[in-house]
Design a protein around this nucleic acid. Structure first.
Lengths: 153, 153
DNA sequence: ACTATAATTTAGCAGACACTAAGTTTTGGA
DNA sequence: TCCAAAACTTAGTGTCTGCTAAATTATAGT
C-alpha cells in the first residue's frame, strides 16, 4: 500500500496483554457517559444554581427521554438524585466523581494548550481525551506542565 | 463545598456548541470499535500473514461470537471481507481506514513517549486516545514532535 | 478415508444509549 | 383561580456490543 517502507515491525504484544488493553478501553468507554453527565450536572449546579433535565438534554445534544433514562441509571448507581421539577443533584459519590472528572478535564485542557492547541479545540478534544488518559498519563501531563509553565519554550 | 476556592469561572459554552462537542464525541465512539478491529486485522495480516476470527477474539478479549457479529457489521459497511477458514481481509476502504488508524496510533504513541510516558503505558493509552484526538490535535502533536525530536529537552 | 479437534456460525438474551410520540404533571402568568 | 406552556415520564423501537450454548463445517493427524 503506497510507497511507505513498512514503518516499524512493532511486533504485536502477547495476546493477553493486548486483550487487557481493549478490555480496559471498554471499561473507560462505559464510565465515560456517566462522567460526562455528572460533570455537566456539577457545572450547571455551580454556574446556574440548578441542573435541569431540559438543560442537560440541550447541552448534551440529546432528547429529553434519553436524559431521563440515563439519569435513571445514574440514580440506580448512586451518583445522582432527582427532585422532579427542581432539577438534579449529586450524591456525595456523584460529587466525588464530578470533582475527579473536572480535575482531569482541566489538566487535559491546560496540557493541550501548552502543546499548542487553540482554546476552542483544546476544550472540545479534552471532552473525549479526559476519559482515556490513564493516571500515569495524567501524571506525565502534570509533570510536563510543571516544567513548561515555569520555563516556557 | 470543600475548601476549594472555586477554581475558575469557566463559564459554560453556549448550549449549541456544547452539544456539538458531545455529538462529535459520540460519533468518535461509534467508529472507534470499527477502527480497532480494522487496525488489528491489518496488523495480524502483516505480522502473521493471516487474520483469523479466533485470534481477533483472543486479542480483543472478546468471545468468538462477538467477533462474528462485529465482523458482519464491518462487512456490511464494506471494510472487511471474509473467506471462511481462511481468515479476514480488508477491502480497499478497510485498508484506507487501517492505514489512517495506524498513522494516528503511531503518532500518538510517539507523542506520549516524548512527553515522558513509559512505552508500556504509551501503547495502552494510545489505544484509547487515538480515537479522540482531532486533526488539529494530531497536527499539534506532530509539531511538538518535530520540535522536540530535533532539539531534545 | 475417518474422525477428533478446532474454527466458525447461529440462536437467543441482556444492557446501554439513542429516538419519536404520547401522556402526565407543575408552574407561573393573565 | 385557571389554564397554557414547559418540564418531565412512559411506551415502544432500533442499533451496537457483549454473552453463552448449541450447531455446523473444515482441517489435519492417524
Amino acid at each position: 500500500m503506497s510507497g511507505m517502507p513498512r514503518a516499524s515491525p512493532r511486533s504485536l504484544p502477547p495476546p493477553e496483554d493486548h486483550a487487557a488493553r481493549f478490555t480496559q478501553q471498554r471499561e473507560a468507554d462505559r464510565s465515560a457517559i456517566a462522567e460526562d453527565y455528572v460533570e455537566l450536572i456539577a457545572d450547571l449546579l455551580q454556574e446556574e444554581g440548578e441542573a435541569r433535565a431540559v438543560d442537560i438534554a440541550r447541552r448534551m445534544g440529546v432528547a429529553q427521554a434519553t436524559v431521563a433514562a440515563t439519569v435513571a441509571r445514574l440514580q440506580r448507581d448512586g451518583l445522582v438524585e432527582t427532585k422532579p421539577y427542581r432539577g438534579l443533584f449529586l450524591t456525595p459519590a456523584g460529587q466525588a466523581v464530578a470533582s475527579a472528572a473536572r480535575a482531569r478535564h482541566e489538566l487535559v485542557v491546560r496540557f493541550l494548550l501548552a502543546v499548542g492547541l487553540d482554546p476552542e479545540t483544546a476544550e472540545a478534544d479534552a471532552e473525549g481525551l479526559e476519559h482515556h488518559a490513564s493516571e500515569k498519563a495524567l501524571a506525565a501531563f502534570a509533570r510536563f506542565l510543571a516544567k513548561h509553565e515555569a520555563d516556557p519554550k
